[in-house]
Amino acid sequence: MDKHQETREQNHMLEDTELPTLEQMGNSEAEQLADHVAALRHQIEEANYQYYVEDNPTLTDAEYDQLMGELQRIEEEHPELQTPDSPTQRVGAGPVQDVAQHRHPVPMLSLANARNEEELLAWHRRAQNILPNATFAYVCELKIDGLAMALTYEKGRLTVGATRGDGLIGEDWTANVRTMRVIPQRLRGEQIPDRVEVRGEIYMSTRSFEKLNEEMKDSRLFANPRNAAAGSLRQKDSRITASRHLDFFGYQIGYMQGMDFTNQWEALQLIREWGFPVNPHIHLARTLDEVMDYCKKWEQERFNLPYEIDGVVIKISDLAQQQELGTVARDPRWAIAFKYPPTQVA
């Protein structure tokens, strides 16, 4: 008997019997049920990770639905076993009246823009003037056109999902973020910090954007995928967010307690190990010519991507160099956005 068949038979057996309450159970029975719930959650989240992050489905839709249905039934009969990070909570809850504010422990800075090679060279000269003896490595990342988010994890569990807002105070949309299967409820891997903020971009693919506009029942169509992503996330009814096809790329560690990292490239590897999608086109450049080649390449190839970008973000990778360079106003001196000309709509 294969594993899927064995799971299906176990599910049918469970469906035929009404579960006793935890109070009616002995300690061993209660522990077994709790262990079974934990195993179901692990199977479902592993399937989510393989499907949404690795693009490697390990369960059929029917098998996935069967596991989810069993978990929902147990949690309905034993609400004391429900947890905020259960996969069942990804379907969304009823509407909220007010959206809480979230003060970012570390400000989410804006980026200065460079619109041509001369402005990129000027940015580099300013950094070199501050650190004249430094050799820089640069991390190049596609600038996804979406909604910046800060995701806080404590002991590996998602506790806050907040928008950038004005950089100092954002909006707390944790319940809506939990509906996104691409974002882990718990961090994966062996190295889990006590507390960490993972920053990234919530976006909507071009195909999902076009499909959403086709399905809109009134004339209030979204102007572009960025607006569609922001509007879909910032819904007072999280069930609406759950029905939209939102994606996410992690791109930065805002802060971290209980672990250390030394550069941006290492941060991206940690983010990937924790179970987040990281854009596959990131590039570590050793020279400014290499950076410029990357920018020119993606200006031509951006229309082949399944999502919209409006430029490239270049970051000096070394964390110690970042701290020495500091910020001016609300812009870090160690990063810049190389912006592409807007696309012309006929």
Rank of each mutant, 00 (worst) to 15 (best):
residue 60 T to V: 01
residue 126 R to C: 05
residue 74 I to E: 06
residue 246 L to Q: 04
residue 254 G to D: 10
residue 312 V to P: 00
residue 202 I to Q: 09
residue 232 S to C: 13
residue 105 P to G: 08
residue 249 F to R: 10
residue 102 H to Q: 11
residue 250 G to I: 09
residue 59 L to E: 00
residue 130 I to F: 02
residue 332 P to E: 02
residue 122 A to N: 07
residue 211 K to N: 08
residue 144 I to E: 08
residue 201 E to I: 15
residue 80 E to W: 08
residue 202 I to P: 03
residue 204 M to H: 14
residue 66 Q to C: 06
residue 111 L to C: 06
residue 193 P to F: 02
residue 198 V to K: 13
residue 180 M to D: 01
residue 228 A to G: 10
residue 84 P to Q: 06
residue 190 E to C: 04
residue 31 E to F: 08
residue 134 A to S: 09
residue 121 L to G: 03
residue 315 K to S: 12
residue 134 A to M: 11
residue 41 R to W: 02
residue 277 P to R: 15
residue 60 T to C: 01
residue 273 E to D: 15
residue 48 N to I: 00
residue 36 H to E: 13
residue 200 G to S: 12
residue 123 W to Q: 11
residue 272 R to P: 02
residue 257 Q to P: 00
residue 66 Q to G: 03
residue 148 A to S: 15
residue 96 V to Q: 10
residue 317 S to C: 03
residue 73 R to A: 13
residue 257 Q to N: 11
residue 344 Q to N: 04
residue 288 L to M: 15
residue 161 G to V: 02
residue 72 Q to Y: 08
residue 250 G to M: 10
residue 210 E to T: 06
residue 154 E to R: 12
residue 248 F to G: 15
residue 122 A to G: 06
residue 200 G to W: 05
residue 100 A to S: 14
residue 259 M to N: 12
residue 332 P to C: 08
residue 152 T to A: 11
residue 129 N to T: 13
residue 108 M to K: 00
residue 60 T to F: 00
residue 336 I to A: 12
residue 118 E to Q: 13
residue 328 V to M: 05
residue 105 P to S: 06
residue 28 S to N: 02
residue 211 K to F: 11
residue 217 K to L: 15
residue 311 G to V: 00
residue 123 W to D: 10
residue 339 K to Y: 01
residue 65 D to T: 04
residue 248 F to H: 12
residue 287 T to H: 12
residue 343 T to R: 02
residue 227 N to W: 04
residue 111 L to Q: 06
residue 328 V to Q: 07
residue 80 E to F: 03
residue 157 R to M: 15
residue 129 N to G: 13
residue 120 L to G: 05
residue 273 E to K: 15
residue 79 P to S: 06
residue 291 V to T: 00
residue 252 Q to A: 07
residue 263 N to I: 03
residue 209 F to P: 10
residue 88 T to R: 04
residue 163 T to E: 04
residue 36 H to F: 11
residue 47 A to D: 00
residue 107 P to K: 07
residue 91 V to P: 01
residue 45 E to C: 01
residue 305 L to H: 05
residue 102 H to M: 13
residue 82 Q to D: 14
residue 218 D to I: 03
residue 246 L to H: 05
residue 278 V to Q: 01
residue 37 V to C: 11
residue 107 P to I: 07
residue 198 V to W: 09
residue 310 D to Q: 04
residue 104 H to K: 01
residue 202 I to D: 04
residue 339 K to I: 02
residue 3 K to C: 01
residue 22 L to Y: 06
residue 320 A to M: 04
residue 43 Q to K: 01
residue 147 L to Y: 11
residue 282 I to M: 07
residue 207 R to M: 14
residue 101 Q to P: 07
residue 262 T to G: 13
residue 25 M to H: 07
residue 11 N to F: 06
residue 215 E to C: 14
residue 164 R to T: 09
residue 302 R to Y: 06
residue 96 V to F: 12
residue 16 D to C: 11
residue 29 E to G: 09
residue 252 Q to N: 06
residue 309 I to L: 06
residue 44 I to N: 00
residue 99 V to L: 10
